[in-house]
């Protein structure tokens, strides 16, 4: 009489859940796809050459400043110009080289836009569309990828590196004991690369 009859369990929990509690970080878990995303980002990081920015990125070069390799005496404004002209000419074919340079693919400029795999796919497409295609070169890079191991993966503590038995309920990282779990929760859980 006093209480409305319960319709279903889910409804009841919906009623009881406040936005404050559901927004608490502790309740959020990463689903499998998000975990996979994190993993691939982490693995891409392993191929990086530098983890910091180019220290010379913000240097503004003064044209009149003496270049390294200039002679001290008579270092007039003309000298740097001369060295510039000399530079591309160790070969007899210097002129041609300059012309050809334009045709060369400029990877470094597009590097941040396109991944390495995209370049490989593009090259494969270019070869397969050419008239006399060399079939050995088509898709060779992807076909050569190592197959997955037949041994099950081992588990290591993310904090200390030793063998671990437990798994973080939120992000799936492994840990070996209470101590390492606390370290993980305080530092990397949900913050790792996020």
């Amino acid at each position: 009489m006093f209480f409305a009859p319960r319709k279903s369990a889910t409804n009841a929990s919906q009623l009881r859940a406040s936005t404050r509690i559901s927004n608490l970080e502790g309740n959020r878990t990463l689903d499998e796809s998000a975990r996979k995303n994190r993993r691939t980002r982490q693995l891409d990081g392993l191929e990086q050459d530098n983890s910091h920015d180019d220290p010379h990125a913000n240097i503004i070069w003064n044209k009149a400043a003496p270049k390294f390799g200039d002679e001290m005496i008579g270092g007039s404004a003309k000298k740097p110009k001369k060295t510039k002209d000399d530079k591309p000419g160790p070969s007899v074919h210097g002129d041609k080289a300059r012309r050809r340079k334009l045709a060369r693919p400029e990877f470094n400029k597009q590097r941040f836009k396109k991944s390495f795999n995209a370049h490989v796919t593009e090259q494969t497409k270019a070869i397969s569309s050419s008239a006399d295609a060399d079939y050995r070169r088509i898709n060779a890079y992807f076909l050569s990828t190592a197959p997955p191991s037949c041994k099950p993966p081992r588990k290591f503590c993310a904090a200390c590196g030793k063998t671990s038995n437990y798994c973080c309920t939120r992000c799936g990282a492994k840990y070996c004991g209470i101590k390492c779990r606390d370290v993980h929760n305080d530092t990397r859980c949900m913050k790792w690369l996020a």
Binding site: R39, L46, P147, S149, P153, R154, F156, C160, K162
Partner: peptide, 25 residues
Amino acid sequence: VERFATPEILFNPSDIDIDQCGVAE
């Protein structure tokens, strides 16, 4: 552990979640 766990990755890439087999395999 890092002393031997680092080169171990070559033999077991799955240790760092790379889904590929090791050199010996």
